[in-house]
Amino acid sequence: MTEGTLIKVGMADLNIAEGGAMLRTTGLGSCVGLTLFDPILRIGGMAHIMLPSSDIAREGQLNIAKYADTAVPELLRRMTSKGAVTGRLIAKMAGGAQMFALVGAADTMRIGPRNVEATKQALEYFSIPLVSEDTGGNYGRTVELSSQTGVFSIRSVQFGVKEI
């Protein structure tokens, strides 16, 4: 991995980057794009979380990148195996929107806020500080993390690009 490399993280997927590579996930709606960054070793990680809890999983082979409660420990494991130190990691996240406001909608339609909440709980469990977030609203986001600087950039149709 060299500078300028772009690593795509799909839906319900996670990956790590080092050596200046960028991590990118596109079209986040109710999903949450969580990133972890070790500022000393300059290792970044990103998960595209789709659902809050693996308790609701009925799949045979669990995709641990999909659920907040399993994606966070897996991302942590992948990063520490590359030498990152849990106590140094900082988290940033975006997404968790409510794209459609349906009248009298079932709880499943409030999945965005629930994903955000569950992700925060998982971070708290490992005492990883969430330094900034851009969550909620009713619009989609594409996010990128630089493993060189830890800068997290968020693009939306309405508001253009912002960095946090």
Partner: peptide, 18 residues
Amino acid sequence: DMAGAILSYGLLQFGTMG
């Protein structure tokens, strides 16, 4: 909005299965 953000709403029920 972005197609991915919109369509993911229709995938939640399948999401728990695979």
